[in-house]
Simulated assay, not measured.
Amino acid sequence: MTTPPGAQGNPSNEPGEPRSGRWSDLGRPPLNAASLRRALVRDGGLWSSLDVVPVTGSTNTDLAGRADGLAEGTVLVAEEQDAGRGRLDRQWTAPARSGLFFSVLLKPTGVPVERWGWLPLLAGVATATALSRAAGVDTALKWPNDLLVTVDGQERKTGGILAERAGPDAVVVGIGINVTLREDELPVPGAGSLLLAGATTTDRDTILRAVLRSLGQWYEKWRSVGGDPARSGLQDTYAAGCATLGRVVRAELPGDKSITGEAVAVDGDGRLVLATAEGVQQPVGAGDIVHLRPAGDTGDAGDR
Rank of each mutant, 00 (worst) to 15 (best):
G9F: 10
G9Q: 12
N10G: 12
P11L: 13
S12R: 15
E14N: 11
E14Q: 15
S20M: 10
G21N: 09
R22Q: 12
R22I: 14
W23E: 14
P29G: 00
P30E: 00
L31N: 10
N32F: 06
R38K: 11
R38I: 00
S48P: 06
T61C: 03
L63V: 08
A67N: 04
E72M: 10
T74E: 13
T74G: 07
Q81E: 14
D82K: 10
D89I: 06
A94P: 04
L100T: 02
S103I: 02
V104R: 05
L105I: 07
L105F: 04
P108K: 05
W118K: 05
P120Q: 06
L121E: 02
L121Y: 06
L122W: 07
A123S: 13
A123D: 04
V125S: 02
A128W: 08
T129Y: 01
K142S: 10
T150M: 01
G153F: 07
L162K: 03
L162C: 04
P168R: 14
V172E: 11
T180K: 11
L186N: 09
V188T: 15
L196D: 01
A199F: 07
R204P: 07
D205M: 05
L208V: 06
R209K: 10
R209N: 05
V211K: 02
L212Y: 00
L212S: 04
R213E: 14
L215S: 01
Q217R: 10
S224Y: 01
V225N: 02
S232V: 07
D236E: 12
T237M: 07
C242A: 10
A243C: 00
T244H: 03
L245E: 03
R247P: 00
V249P: 08
R250A: 08
A251P: 10
K257S: 14
I259T: 13
V264Y: 09
A265F: 12
D267H: 06
A277I: 02
V280I: 12
V280Q: 15
V280T: 15
Q281K: 14
Q282W: 11
G285Q: 03
G285K: 03
R293G: 05
P294N: 06
T298L: 14
G299M: 12
A301V: 03
G302H: 00
